[in-house]
Amino acid sequence: MSNSNLPAVVTRYLAAHNARDLDPAMACYTEDAVAVDDGHTYRGPAEIRAWLARATAVKYTTTLLSTHRVDDEHHVAVQHLEGDFPGGVVDLRFQFTLRGDRIAELVIEP
């Protein structure tokens, strides 16, 4: 699956997130960004970086299943994950809200 219909910042973020590369991933967020994952909300660079650092400890592979442009500011990428986490397999919706050329909010849910 190609991610060519996603904005450049989303493509960069997904690549950095999947590579577990914190600095490039963090560069994609606004200073007041919010990330929601597994029922927890992370606000601002310090909390988001700590969340991403914990996520890098989990071993998993990803496959991009689909992408969807809702409007200019909202985009969805569905990824299939397999790895060393409870259940071992999950499809997750990465729901991005953009402000300008950066991510203002990311909600990850099944």
Score class of each variant (00 low, 15 high):
Ala77Val: 07
Ala46Ile: 00
His80Leu: 10
Thr30Trp: 01
Val107Asn: 01
Leu6Ile: 07
His40Ala: 11
Leu64Phe: 01
Gly44Lys: 06
Pro86Thr: 13
Tyr13Ser: 13
Ala33Leu: 05
Ala19Lys: 06
His74Cys: 00
Phe96Cys: 03
Gln79Arg: 10
Ala15Thr: 11
Arg99Thr: 15
Val36Glu: 13
His80Ser: 10
Tyr60Pro: 01
His80Gln: 10
Met26Lys: 07
Arg20Cys: 09
Val10Thr: 14
Val36Gly: 05
Asp32Glu: 12
Leu81Arg: 10
Ala19His: 11
Arg12Trp: 00
Ala16His: 08
Asp84Cys: 06
Val58Gln: 00
Gly83Met: 03
Thr67Arg: 11
Tyr60Arg: 06
Gln79Phe: 01
Asp72Met: 06
Cys28Trp: 07
Asn5Glu: 15
Ala25Pro: 07
Phe94Gln: 03
Ala50His: 12
Ala15Lys: 15
Ala19Tyr: 01
Asp32Gly: 15
Ala77Trp: 04
Ala57Val: 04
Leu64Pro: 05
Phe94Trp: 11
Arg69Pro: 05
Gly39Tyr: 06
Val9Ile: 13
Arg69Glu: 09
Leu65Cys: 06
Ala35Tyr: 04
Lys59Glu: 07
Arg49Cys: 00
Gly88Ala: 01
Phe96Met: 03
Arg102Lys: 15
Ala16Met: 12
Asn3Tyr: 07
Val90Gln: 09
Tyr29Trp: 14
Ser2Tyr: 05
Asp37Pro: 03
Ala27Leu: 07
Glu73Gln: 09
His40Phe: 13
Pro86Phe: 13
Tyr42Lys: 06
Leu6Ala: 07
Ala8Lys: 15
Ala53Gly: 01
Thr67Gln: 08
Ala35Cys: 06
Asp71Thr: 03
Arg20Pro: 04
Ala16Thr: 00
Val76Glu: 06
Ala19Gly: 05
Ser66His: 02
Thr63Leu: 04
Val10Pro: 06
Asn5Arg: 05
Gln79Glu: 13
Asp84Tyr: 07
Glu31Lys: 12
Leu22Thr: 04
Val70Glu: 12
His80Pro: 00
Val107Ser: 02
Arg12Thr: 15
His40Asp: 09
Thr63Asn: 03
Thr41Cys: 04
Ala33Asp: 05
Asp84Ser: 13
Val34Arg: 09
Arg69Asn: 06
Leu64Tyr: 03
Ser4Ile: 11
Cys28Thr: 15
Asn5Cys: 08
Asn18Pro: 02
Arg69Phe: 05
Lys59Phe: 01
Phe94Tyr: 15
His68Met: 06
Ser2Cys: 08
Leu106Ser: 02
Cys28Ser: 14
Thr97Trp: 03
Ala104Asn: 08
Ala15Asn: 14
Ala27Arg: 10
Pro7Ile: 14
Thr63Trp: 05
His80Arg: 15
Arg54Lys: 08
Tyr13Trp: 13
Thr30Arg: 03
Thr67Met: 06
Thr56Gln: 08
Leu14Val: 01
Lys59Tyr: 03
Arg43Trp: 00
Thr56Ile: 00
Arg12Val: 11
Tyr29Ser: 09
Trp51Cys: 08
Cys28Arg: 12
Glu82Ala: 08
Asp91Phe: 10
Pro45Ile: 12
Val9Lys: 06
Met1Ile: 07
Asn5Ile: 12
